[in-house]
């Protein structure tokens, strides 16, 4: 089946590409753009490992077709750091010991980024609610939530 042309902005760079409609945004990012920071796990929207921002809103990229990204702006984990330097939220994840195996962490960071963009000063309960779509089997939730609160206090 023929490909569909789209114009999508990824991490600030506009791209005109042709994608097959049966390609998820997740596969497009990982396989086509080699932006492998966005992770694949459950393919159901249950784990949050594939979380990216779409026009500033957190979405599961496994539940979106790449063609739906046409005329939209996508931000992935690679788009948060500047010149490979972590931003303050990522620094907070490091400082609070929120990273264990790290596989869920890009998704957690993106969900946290979205949460703080909507609610710059969340309570612990709000952080737990906001990150409840991101599974961490290492069980680092306490530190992840602490990191988000710390980043909030730091005003990111």
């Amino acid at each position: 089946m023929s490909s569909t042309p789209i114009r999508v902005t990824v991490n600030g760079a506009e791209r005109e590409v042709e994608v097959a409609p049966n390609t998820t945004l997740l596969d497009f990012l990982r396989d086509r753009l080699q932006l492998t920071g966005t992770k694949e796990c459950c393919d159901l929207g249950e784990c949050g490992a594939c979380t990216v921002l779409l026009d500033g809103r957190a979405v599961n990229s496994c539940l979106m077709l790449a063609v739906e990204g046409d005329a939209r702006e996508v931000t992935t984990i690679e788009g948060l750091s500047e010149n490979g330097r972590p931003n303050a939220l990522q620094d907070a994840f490091l400082a609070k010991g929120a990273v264990q195996c790290g596989f869920c962490i890009p998704g957690q960071v993106m969900a946290a980024r979205y949460l703080l963009s909507r609610n710059p000063h969340p309570t612990l309960a709000e952080v737990r609610e906001g990150l409840s779509g991101n599974l961490c089997r290492c069980g680092g939730y306490v530190q992840i939530c602490e990191a988000v609160l710390a980043a909030s206090e730091a005003g990111t």
């Binding site: 929207g45 949050g48 979380t51 957190a58 979405v59 599961n60 539940l63 969900a111 409840s132 779509g133």
Partner: peptide
């Protein structure tokens, strides 16, 4: 209904 990510879509 689902997570924040789900409800955004």
């Amino acid at each position: 209904v689902g997570s924040a990510q789900i409800r955004n879509r």
